[in-house]
Design a protein around this nucleic acid. Structure first.
Lengths: 133, 133
DNA sequence: GTTTGCTCCTGTAGCCACTACAGGAATTAG
DNA sequence: CTAATTCCTGTAGTGGCTACAGGAGCAAAC
């Protein structure tokens, strides 16, 4: 059994974040030492690591909770997981597209910016009517 | 002069958001009607539209406030604007790279998912030690 | 055995940029 | 004149943490 500091080290999840996950019911409450300290088993630490990896993949907490319940149910999990992952993939692709369009717009706007001018063509363009959305 | 509803329509900024911008000092406080309603000039509406466009470009509020003060100062603005825009561009590019790497990881993980399996290879991989960060 | 220093505890508030009420007042349309 | 609409203020909630404050447990050095 490990105290929260070790659990944090081994899982890569910040101590405060671990406590937050517990408060929110994202991970189950761990046992306590006689002195009142949280004690984590390797299984519980694995679960924390799982949450971190999912977060790193950009999954929102709600989806991760579904994942966790699916790993318990163990039944027709894979289809649901795949669907959630593909949904998430679509969102990621949409974000990439948005950002790419944004980059183009920004490049176009700042292209005419040259240092030393009195009024800035980029700010001008953003202020004027009839331009850009 | 326009009430907040018309200002919202014409600027594309949500009514609640306009009041929020005012509270936060992002845009100056407008005049009021005898009955206490906010009244916006076309100039003030243009400013709101400017803020919205910048937000659409992904600029954080703090940077937009700098932009707004630069349009007032009107002095050596363009160099600063360009620097801020390029900085922002770098951040956008970093985000795109991150999301692209994420997409690859997710594609790799969900590739082995096929419906109907009892245990999911994706969840398995995320649970196991030795894998992925 | 006590002092030092580390880790841990709870509870609360802050971050960003909004959004969503509740409960009431003013304006406008019919 | 009434009904519908718009507006007002103030507060609280969103997601996913992060950062305290103020105190208690615990191990090792002296």
């Amino acid at each position: 059994m490990f105290t929260i500091g070790k659990a944090s080290e081994q899982s890569g999840v910040n101590i405060e974040t671990i406590r937050y996950y517990e408060r929110e019911g994202i991970v189950p409450k761990p046992g306590r030492s006689p002195g009142g300290r949280r004690l984590y088993s390797t299984d519980e630490i694995a679960k924390l690591r799982f949450v971190r990896r999912c977060r790193n993949l950009g999954f929102p907490i709600l989806i991760i909770q579904t994942f966790l319940s699916l790993t318990i149910e163990d039944d027709r999990s894979c289809g649901e997981v795949k669907a959630l992952a593909e949904n998430h993939l679509d969102e990621i692709n949409a974000k990439i597209e948005n950002l790419t369009r944004l980059r183009e717009a920004l490049l176009g706007l700042s292209a005419n910016c040259d240092d030393g001018t009195a009024t800035c063509p980029m700010l001008d363009a953003l202020m004027k009517d009839g331009f850009y959305a």
